[in-house]
Write a protein that binds this DNA or RNA. Structure first.
Lengths: 202, 202
DNA sequence: GACAAACACGAGTAAATGCTCGTATTTTTC
DNA sequence: GAAAAATACGAGCATTTACTCGTGTTTGTC
């Protein structure tokens, strides 16, 4: 197997450029229809150069997903101080939702990698990783709020909550800014409604 | 524009065969990755024959979506007698959900046309039609239950409910039959949770 | 400054895929 | 039963697209 070359500064910059470009093209065309040539063009670079840094389209998507994952983690880190988990449910949900929506608005490519339920086969790998990261984050918060929730219930609940979230995210980011709050509040209601029974357990 | 030829009995049968085949291939590969040649092969027919009946891949998908739409309408027709709308919320939701899940299990292609949130561009046309049909059905039921709900709230609510439903449908039909009930009940809880506030309005 | 490693180019390739078209067979029409 | 219309075939065209490769340039190392 060919070793990863030792990247120099110029190379690092190129990789960032390429990821930026990929985000734009993924956002415009969706993962499946996005062509590597278009991504290279968007980055102002030849197709050969793209492949100097990423083995294939999937690797590119994976790297982009990784970037999103860490941006998301940072955003959540910022939004959560200890004690947040004990807030009233609507506020807790709001604090989970906001950062995600913002990351999404700032990184239009996000939805393309996160959103679509069933992309063909292996193409889903980066998607699944992202979904898993989000689900994990949700699980952490729920675990903090409901310490004695059985772990299988915890897993199910976070998975469902994440899927509900993913389902409405598309509408939220697509919608004009004026109407956005309405949909966010709708998403909030849905999640609060789903989670309320947990709050009312003995 | 070339006129639609007057179909003879043999042709009608072929069209059914082709739609069946398309459902199978869409289910296995998803819409985007499904090839028309594979569909023709699955139907035991040459590619040329396929195009004798459907102008292109999209027209094929549209026809299939239309078929699902009517199957769905029939299933719902069967599940609703007048008065259903006044049932307790969990039961009402259950009656909405069951037929959809069943149509899905019987027609594996359904999810491929209904599920994925943002397929590229025009490919979404058949998808949107299906989603719209389902949303419309949901709206009817909600309108019957909440006659004085303003029409914009009605539209929003049915759209959100449908999206929640679509999001969890994938998990439900993919999951082994033994665990299916658990996920159906989870979906039920999510929808009931979302709709409960409407029940409690003055 | 010389040598190697990393970077860059972009025309080109192989494979996939939606769809066509010339031809041949079956069914309907009269 | 003959002309017309519908059905059927399948090799292959045109296009797209992920990716390569030969060649040349820039950067780091000693």
């Amino acid at each position: 197997m060919p070793e990863e070359p030792r990247r120099q500064a110029r190379g690092q910059r190129r990789m960032v450029q390429l990821l930026d470009a990929a985000a734009v093209v993924f956002a415009e065309a969706g993962y499946a229809k996005a062509t590597t040539n278009a991504i290279a063009r968007q980055a102002g670079v030849s197709p050969g150069t793209l492949y100097q840094f990423f083995a294939n389209k999937e690797a590119l998507a994976e790297a982009l997903a990784e970037r999103y994952r860490s941006e998301l983690a940072a955003a959540h880190e910022k939004a959560f101080d200890p004690g947040t988990a004990q807030l009233p449910l609507p506020e807790l949900v709001d604090r989970m939702i906001r950062p995600m929506v913002e990351v999404n608005l700032e990184n239009p490519g996000f939805k393309a990698l996160f959103g679509s339920g069933d992309l063909p086969d292996k193409l889903t790998a980066p998607t699944r990783a992202l979904q898993k990261a989000v689900t994990g984050r949700v699980a952490e918060v729920l675990a903090a709020r409901y310490p004695d929730l059985p772990s299988d219930r915890l897993a199910t609940t976070s998975a469902v909550a994440t899927q509900i979230f993913a389902a409405l995210l598309g509408t939220i980011v697509t919608t004009p800014a004026t109407e956005r709050e309405r949909w966010i509040s709708e998403l909030n209601q849905a999640l609060v409604g789903y989670l309320t029974p947990l709050d009312q357990r003995v």
